[in-house]
C-alpha cells in the first residue's frame, strides 16, 4: 500500500493496467448480458421480470462495496496519512452514487410488477435510501468546502460514521420483516439460485466490479491532475 501511495508511481501503474481493465470489463459485460438476456431461463413465478436481477443486484452489491472502499480509504487517510487515500475516497463517491441510484431505480421497476408498489418503506429499501443520502452528503462536503484539507477532514468522518449503514443494509432482510427477499447468493449454506441464473449474475457482478476499477483509476488520475493545477495556481499567486 505504501508503494502505491506515491502518486507518480500510482499513475504509472494505472496507465499501464487501464487498457487491460477496460478490455476485461467489455468482455465480462458481453458474456454477462448474453447469459442474462439470452441463455438464462424465465423464472417460474416472475417470468421475464427476473431479468431485472442481472442489473439490479450487481448495482446494489457495488453500492455497498464502493461505500466500503470509501470508508477503508478514509481510515487509511486517518491512520497512515497516505496522500492518495483521500483522493481514492473522494473519487469513488460519484461512481458509488450512480450504482446506488441504479439499485433504487431498477429495484423500483422490479417492485411495481412483483409487489404492486413502486416503493415501500421497509428496512432494506429505507437503509438503501439512507446509503444514497450518505453518498450525496459526502459529495456535498467536497463541493461545499473549498480547502481540500478541511474538506477531507469532514469527509473522512462522514465516510467512517456512515459505514455503520453498510451492515444494516446487508442484514436488514434478516433482522426485520421485509417485503424484500432474503439473501440468495452470499449465504452460509450456499446460493439458492439455480446455476443457469447464478452464473450470469456472478459474471455481471464481476463486470460491474471491473467497471468500477476502470472508472476509479481514471477518476484518481483526473483528481491528481486537478490538484496539480491547483498547486500551480497557488504557486503563481505566491510569486506575485
Amino acid at each position: 500500500m505504501q508503494y502505491l501511495a506515491n502518486p507518480t508511481r500510482f499513475l504509472k501503474i494505472a496507465n499501464a493496467v487501464l487498457p487491460y481493465v477496460w478490455a476485461i470489463t467489455i468482455g465480462l459485460f458481453a458474456i454477462g448480458l448474453y447469459g442474462g438476456l439470452v441463455t438464462s431461463p424465465q423464472d417460474y413465478q416472475q417470468g421475464e421480470t427476473v431479468r431485472i436481477m442481472y442489473v439490479h443486484v450487481p448495482a446494489a452489491w457495488m453500492a455497498l462495496f464502493v461505500y466500503s472502499v470509501m470508508a477503508l480509504a478514509s481510515a487509511v487517510a486517518v491512520i497512515f496519512r497516505h496522500p492518495l487515500a483521500d483522493v481514492a475516497a473522494k473519487t469513488a463517491a460519484p461512481i458509488g452514487a450512480v450504482f446506488c441510484f441504479l439499485a433504487l431505480a431498477t429495484g423500483s421497476l422490479w417492485g411495481k410488477p412483483m409487489w404492486g408498489a413502486w416503493w415501500v418503506w421497509d428496512a432494506r429499501l429505507t437503509s438503501m435510501f439512507v446509503l444514497m443520502l450518505l453518498y450525496i452528503g459526502y459529495m456535498a462536503i467536497w463541493a461545499a468546502i473549498e480547502d481540500p484539507h478541511r474538506a477531507a477532514m469532514v469527509a473522512r468522518v462522514v465516510a467512517l460514521v456512515g459505514f455503520i449503514n453498510v451492515p444494516i443494509v446487508k442484514f436488514s432482510v434478516d433482522w426485520w420483516n421485509s417485503l424484500h427477499q432474503p439473501a440468495s447468493v452470499f449465504r452460509m449454506d450456499g446460493p439458492t439460485i439455480h446455476g443457469s441464473m447464478l452464473w450470469p449474475l456472478l459474471v455481471m457482478g464481476l463486470a460491474y466490479s471491473f467497471l468500477f476499477l476502470a472508472l476509479h483509476l481514471v477518476s484518481i488520475r483526473a483528481e491528481v491532475a486537478a490538484r496539480k493545477i491547483r498547486q500551480i495556481h497557488i504557486a503563481e499567486i505566491g510569486e506575485r
Binding site: 441504479l102 431505480a105 431498477t106
Partner: peptide
C-alpha cells in the same frame, strides 16, 4: 411477455446512467 416494459426500462436506465458516467469521467480526465 407480461411486464416486459419494466425489464426494458431497467436496462435502458442502466445503460443511460452507466454510459453517462463513463463519458463524464473520461471527459473530465
Amino acid at each position: 411477455a407480461n411486464h416486459i416494459g419494466f425489464v426494458l426500462a431497467s436496462y435502458a436506465i442502466s445503460v443511460l446512467m452507466i454510459g453517462g458516467l463513463i463519458i463524464q469521467v473520461l471527459r473530465r480526465d
